[in-house]
Computed example of a mutant assay.
Amino acid sequence: MKRLKEFTIPFVGLKLGKHHFEYQINNTFFEHFEYEEFNSSSVSVDVLFDKKTTLFELHFEISGTVNINCDLTNEAYNQEISNQFDIVVKFGEELNDEEIDILILPHGEYEINIQQYIYEFIVLSVPTKRVHPGVKDGTLDSEILKKLEELSPKLKENKETEEETDPRWNTLKKLLTDK
């Protein structure tokens, strides 16, 4: 994966305090990661970079839409996403990104690239089960949905079918009622 320059923040030249960065993400961004789950995407990422004397705090706010396929019907639809994430950047002996929300950079580092974090945060903002809104409210007219309803198991609604049991069990039922 190639590092994109626009996602590199050179923190050495920044003054102490808060700095704001904005990014507009579309499918060309995801092509760098060879991620092809989105048909199209329009996501806004706001990063608040708070530089302190010994550490940095990064606050990510993600909002926008991604066009994805429904897991049930394979119909494309626009999924709204919105999420927030925080990362604390500290300095240490060597690079360590094993913690979820703490990044340790080696001493002497002068910039941080946040493209991997933006990619992961956007992908994590999409629901794991992708269901078209038309499936939920019943307005989607799809051949696949009709076939799924046709093949779904039917629930027994009348009690006559429940009473149709194997006649060999009837004598055992009498034992229960004879007490």
Rank of each mutant, 00 (worst) to 15 (best):
M1A: 11
K2E: 13
K5N: 11
K5A: 13
E6G: 03
E6R: 15
F7E: 00
I9P: 00
I9M: 02
P10A: 02
F11C: 06
V12P: 04
V12S: 14
G13T: 09
G13W: 07
G13Y: 06
G13K: 11
K15S: 14
K15D: 13
L16T: 08
G17E: 05
K18A: 13
K18V: 10
K18E: 09
H19I: 00
H19Q: 01
H19P: 06
F21T: 02
Q24G: 07
Q24S: 10
N26G: 10
N26A: 13
T28F: 13
F29I: 03
F29M: 02
F29A: 01
F30P: 07
H32A: 09
E34Q: 10
Y35G: 05
E36W: 05
E36F: 13
E36V: 14
E37C: 10
E37T: 12
S40W: 05
S40K: 11
S40H: 07
S41L: 03
V43M: 05
D46A: 14
V47C: 06
V47R: 04
D50I: 04
K52A: 14
F56D: 00
F56N: 00
L58D: 02
L58E: 01
F60R: 03
F60Y: 13
I62V: 10
I62D: 01
I62Y: 02
S63C: 04
G64S: 03
T65D: 07
I68R: 00
I68M: 03
N69L: 14
D71K: 10
A76E: 11
A76W: 05
A76I: 10
Y77D: 04
Y77V: 08
N78A: 12
E80L: 15
E80H: 11
S82G: 09
D86V: 10
I87L: 15
I87G: 01
V89R: 03
V89A: 01
G92Q: 07
E94W: 08
L95E: 09
E98A: 14
E98M: 12
I102R: 04
I102A: 04
I104H: 03
H107Y: 14
G108Q: 08
Y110D: 07
Y110S: 14
E111G: 09
E111Q: 13
I114R: 00
Q115G: 05
Y117I: 12
I118W: 01
I118P: 00
I122K: 01
I122N: 01
I122R: 01
V123R: 06
S125Y: 03
V126R: 03
V126W: 05
R130V: 06
V131S: 05
V131E: 11
H132R: 14
K136E: 12
K136W: 05
D137H: 04
D137E: 11
T139E: 04
S142E: 07
L145V: 08
K146F: 08
L148A: 11
E149S: 14
E150W: 03
L151F: 09
S152F: 12
S152G: 10
K154C: 10
K156A: 15
K156F: 12
K156G: 06
E157K: 14
E157I: 15
N158P: 06
E160Q: 08
E160P: 01
E160L: 14
T161A: 15
E162Y: 15
E162A: 11
E162G: 02
T165W: 06
P167M: 07
P167Q: 02
R168A: 10
W169H: 13
W169V: 15
N170Y: 02
K174V: 12
L175A: 11
L175Y: 10
L176Q: 09
T177P: 05
D178Y: 09
K179T: 11
